[in-house]
C-alpha cells in the first residue's frame, strides 16, 4: 500500500496527539477545582446563550408554538418552509423603514453627540478648583445611572403637553410642541435624551485617557511658551486620539445594537414611522402579533449583520490600534 510509507509519520502524529490528550487529562485530574469553577458560567452559557441558537430554526419554519410538548419541542415539529419568511420580510416596506430608522437614529446620535464628551473631558481637565471640578463631574455623570424609564419620566415632566418647556413656549407666544408625538421632533428627543444620559460616562473614559498622558510633556511645552490652546492641540489631542478612534469604532460597530430600551420606553404608535427600529419591530412582531417566525427571521438578519459589523470593528481596531475590543 502506498500509505505504508506514511505509517511511521502517522504513528508519531498519533503519539503526539495521544500525549497531548493525556497531558490535558493529567492537568484536569491535578486541578479539578479550576474546572469545577467553570461549571456555573458554562451552565449559563448553555442555557441562555447557546440554547436559543437552536430557536433560530423558527425563522426557516412555520412555527406553531403549540405543536409540541413545550415551545422548544414545537420548533422541531413545525414544518420547514425554507426562506419564505425572509422573502416576505425583504419585500415588505416595513423592513426598509425599520432599517432606515435604526441607521438614521443611531447615525444622528454619533454625528451630534460623539464630539461632546471629548470637549467635556479636555475642559474638565482645565478646571483647577477641585471642589467645583468634582461638582461638575458628578452632576454630568449621574444621569448615566438612571434607567431609561426614569429618564422618560423626567423628560415627560419637562416636555409633556403640560410640561414646563411648553408652558415657556406658550408664554413666548410660540404655541406648543408635541415632543412625544410629532414625527418631526421625536428623533431630536431621542438624540437629546441619549446625550443627557450618556455624555458623562464617555467623559470619564476620556478623562482617564488624559490622566494617562505624560505630564512632563506639558511642562516642556510650558517652558517652550506654548499656551493652553496649543497644549491641547499638540499634546492632549494626540494623546487622546487612540481612545477617540476606539470609541468611534465601537460606536459604529454597535450601531445595530444600541438604543433599543430607550426607543421601547419613549416611543408610541404616533411616532412609529420615524422611531421604530429593528429591535422594537422584532419585539412587536413576536410578542405583539405572535408572528414568531417572521420576528425570528428579522432578529437573525439583525444578529448576522451586527456580528459582521462587530467583528469588522474589532479587525479595524486590531489593525489601527493593535488592540482587541474584547
Amino acid at each position: 500500500m502506498a500509505s505504508s510509507a506514511f505509517q511511521p509519520l502517522l504513528r508519531t502524529a498519533g503519539r503526539t496527539a495521544g500525549r497531548k490528550v493525556r497531558g490535558f487529562l493529567l492537568y484536569v485530574v491535578r486541578n479539578p477545582a479550576l474546572y469545577l469553577m467553570l461549571l456555573p458560567g458554562l451552565f449559563f452559557l448553555l442555557v441562555y446563550k447557546f440554547a436559543p441558537l437552536y430557536g433560530i430554526l423558527m425563522a426557516f419554519k412555520d412555527y406553531d408554538i403549540f405543536a409540541g410538548k413545550n415551545p422548544i419541542d414545537a420548533i422541531g415539529l413545525s414544518p420547514w418552509v425554507g426562506l419564505k419568511h425572509f422573502e416576505k420580510l425583504f419585500a415588505s416596506p416595513q423592513f426598509l423603514k425599520v432599517l432606515t430608522n435604526t441607521l438614521v437614529i443611531n447615525g444622528l446620535k454619533i454625528a451630534v453627540l460623539f464630539p461632546i464628551p471629548i470637549v467635556c473631558a479636555i475642559l474638565l481637565n482645565e478646571i483647577r478648583n477641585r471642589f467645583f471640578r468634582r461638582f461638575l463631574q458628578t452632576s454630568i455623570y449621574i444621569p448615566y445611572f438612571f434607567s431609561w424609564v426614569i429618564v422618560f419620566g423626567i423628560f415627560y415632566a419637562l416636555l409633556g403637553s403640560y410640561g414646563i418647556v411648553n408652558d415657556g413656549l406658550k408664554a413666548l407666544g410660540l404655541g406648543t410642541v408635541r415632543f412625544f408625538t410629532d414625527t418631526h421632533v421625536f428623533r431630536g428627543v431621542l438624540v437629546f435624551t441619549e446625550g443627557w444620559k450618556e455624555i458623562g460616562y464617555s467623559t470619564v473614559i476620556y478623562l482617564a485617557a488624559i490622566t494617562g498622558i505624560d505630564t512632563t510633556l506639558y511642562e516642556a511645552a510650558r517652558v517652550d511658551g506654548a499656551n493652553k490652546p496649543r497644549q491641547i492641540l499638540h499634546i492632549t489631542m494626540p494623546g487622546l486620539l487612540p481612545t477617540i478612534v476606539l470609541m468611534l469604532i465601537l460606536k459604529v460597530g454597535y450601531i445595530l445594537d444600541t438604543g433599543f430600551e430607550q426607543v421601547l420606553v419613549f416611543y408610541n404608535p404616533a411616532v412609529y414611522d420615524v422611531s421604530d427600529i429593528i429591535q422594537t419591530y422584532v419585539y412587536r412582531l413576536g410578542m405583539g402579533q405572535m408572528n414568531f417566525s417572521l420576528s425570528t427571521a428579522l432578529g437573525l438578519f439583525n444578529s448576522v449583520v451586527a456580528f459582521v459589523l462587530i467583528v469588522g470593528a474589532n479587525t479595524v481596531s486590531k489593525k489601527l490600534l493593535h488592540r482587541s475590543i474584547w
Binding site: 436559543p52 441558537l53 430557536g55 423558527m58 432578529g299 451586527a306 456580528f307
Partner: peptide, 13 residues
Amino acid sequence: MVFFGGIIPAYMV
C-alpha cells in the same frame, strides 16, 4: 458576546 440568538428564541427557552 458577538452573536445573539435573538429575543424570541431566548423567550422560548
